[in-house]
Amino acid sequence: MSAAPDLIREEIALQLSQVAAFAAAGSAQAQVGNDHALAFEVRCAAASLMAVAGLVEHLRPSRQQQGERAA
């Protein structure tokens, strides 16, 4: 297996850890009623999750590699 997919997986793991940290911080802010900080943590978690969604696309085989026609 080439190094590039491994590096992408490492970055995905890091980003997912950040998502978990933002979610935990957001949960704590929700429990204490700090809506401003809660909104910030949710936005940060969402941005990290969107980064992961973009990265994971690099690991998927293209449709042409699967023998299908590309759209």
Score class of each variant (00 low, 15 high):
A20G: 14
R63T: 06
A70D: 15
E10G: 09
A51W: 01
A3F: 13
L7G: 02
A24V: 06
R69F: 13
S27K: 11
A28R: 04
R69V: 13
R43I: 05
A25G: 13
A4M: 06
V56W: 00
A4R: 00
Q29C: 14
M1Q: 04
A4T: 04
G26F: 11
S48A: 12
G33P: 08
I12L: 05
L38T: 12
R63I: 05
A3L: 14
H36C: 00
I8G: 00
P61A: 04
M1S: 11
A23W: 06
P5L: 00
R63H: 09
A13K: 08
L59Q: 01
E68G: 02
P61R: 03
Q66M: 13
R69S: 08
A28F: 07
Q18M: 10
A24S: 12
D6P: 00
V56M: 02
Q65V: 11
H58W: 01
P61I: 01
Q15C: 10
M50E: 13
Q18W: 06
D6N: 02
V52Q: 01
S2Y: 10
Q31F: 08
R43T: 08
D35H: 04
V42H: 07
L16H: 02
A71K: 04
L14F: 15
E10T: 04
R69H: 10
A37S: 15
V42C: 08
E68H: 09
S27Y: 10
C44M: 15
R63P: 05
D6M: 03
A45Q: 07
A53F: 04
M50R: 02
Q66F: 07
L49N: 07
V19S: 12
L16S: 10
E68N: 02
A4D: 03
Q66L: 15
E11K: 00
V56Y: 05
R9F: 10
A28W: 07
A47V: 11
H36T: 13
A13T: 15
L59G: 04
F40M: 12
F40K: 05
Q18F: 14
Q29M: 15
E41W: 15
G33E: 02
L38S: 08
E11I: 08
A28D: 15
I8Y: 00
S48H: 09
A37H: 06
R69M: 05
R43A: 15
V42N: 01
L59I: 02
M1D: 10
A70T: 14
L59A: 02
S27E: 15
A28T: 10
A23E: 14
A28C: 01
A28Q: 14
Q65M: 12
A23S: 12
L16W: 03
Q18D: 12
A3Q: 04
D6R: 01
Q31H: 05
M1Y: 13
A25L: 13
L16C: 07
A71P: 15
A30R: 08
V52P: 06
F40V: 15
R69T: 12
H58D: 06
N34I: 00
L49H: 10
A37M: 12
S27M: 14
S2G: 13
Q65T: 11
A53W: 08
A37I: 10
S2K: 02
R60L: 12
A39D: 13
N34L: 01
L14R: 03
Q64F: 14
L7R: 01
A3R: 01
G26N: 02
A21T: 11
R63L: 15
A4N: 00
G67T: 01
Q18C: 10
G26Y: 07
Q64I: 09
F22K: 02
A47H: 03
A23G: 06
